[in-house]
């Protein structure tokens, strides 16, 4: 019996651990390994170059651009859907007419894959017949033509809007659940003590939503770090690398310029950044834990 149990325990744990090792741990370590080489991705001949790749990162103007874009991208991809989702949740929670319909509508985009969302918004931004320019033309009364995704000034932000459109529904649903979990008598205490709507939100509702915020932000961070596909579909990092992120830069260096060694070095840096963010996040989590258990 004991033997039997052990077999199953090992077998059932072994499969997922094996897959995890194969698809996560092994590539991770091979990235570390290749980051010290000049491998081009297919040649069997390559040599060790020490920290050359990392030194190159320090002087790579495109890396700096991508790092700045990534910061903007992540900040926006966390802040926008989170605040918009929270606002929608507060609005729909206060029993406006048709709240259920709106909830479904706002949630719908999250069911689409990033590729489809990217395609939809590419159409919306299309310069000649896209929805956005058509509407602007209608309002102003004169033909408006602007290539949102092809101009360095607007490319990144246009993608951020598309991304937020998709992610807001998720934040909204999580916040709606969080709002229903707030005990009604706490809000009644606010009424009796004479809290203004803003005071109630700032001092009671928002802090009590902290567990939801933890989840929303965690998902936003994870999703935005993974947010490669929508950029790839909509701009491919262009124009002139104006919407390049680190993930996109890494992809371009590795698979377009065949600098697998250098690409690996970028991925190592990306990994360390992610690690730092997660570390900060867990520290925050412990604080929330002390209060909410």
């Amino acid at each position: 019996m004991e033997q039997h149990n052990r077999f199953w325990r090992i077998a059932l744990l072994g499969l997922p651990l094996g897959l995890f090792g194969l698809f996560v741990v092994w590539p991770l370590f091979s990235s570390f390994y290749y980051s010290f080489t000049d491998w081009n991705g297919f040649d069997t001949n390559y040599s060790f170059v020490g920290f050359d790749n990392f030194a190159k990162i320090a002087t790579d103007r495109l890396f700096l651009q991508a790092a700045i874009n990534t910061t903007i991208w992540m900040a926006a991809a966390i802040i926008l859907p989170t605040t918009l989702g929270l606002m929608l949740a507060l609005l729909l929670d206060s029993r406006v007419a048709g709240a259920r319909v709106f909830k479904s509508i706002f949630y719908l985009p999250i069911c689409l894959s990033a590729v489809i969302v990217g395609q939809i918004w590419t159409w919306i931004y299309q310069p000649d017949w896209g929805l956005l320019n058509t509407i602007i033309s209608q309002i102003t009364g004169e033909k408006f033509k602007y290539a949102w995704l092809a101009k360095p000034d607007t490319a990144l932000w246009s993608v951020i809007v598309a991304w937020s459109w998709q992610q807001t529904g998720l934040a909204m649903v999580i916040y709606l659940a969080g709002l229903t979990a707030i005990p009604g008598d706490l809000l009644e205490v606010c009424e009796i003590e004479g809290a203004s709507p803003w005071q109630r939100f700032r001092r009671v509702v928002l802090p009590l939503l902290a567990p939801s915020t933890v989840v929303v932000v965690a998902l936003s961070v994870i999703n935005s770090l993974k947010g490669f596909d929508i950029l790839y579909i909509m701009t491919g990092g262009g124009p002139f690398n104006s919407s390049d992120t680190l993930a996109m830069h890494m992809y371009n260096e590795s698979f377009k310029k065949y600098l697998m060694g250098y690409g690996s070095a970028i991925s190592v840096v990306l990994f360390l950044i992610a690690l730092a963010i997660i570390g900060l996040y867990f520290r925050q989590l412990r604080k929330v834990d002390r209060i909410y258990g």
């Binding site: 008598d185 706490l186 205490v189 009671v204 802090p207 009590l208 902290a210 209060i291 909410y292």
Partner: peptide, 8 residues
């Protein structure tokens, strides 16, 4: 009855 204290 539930005390209604703010947990945070």
């Amino acid at each position: 009855q539930s005390y209604a204290l703010f947990p945070h």
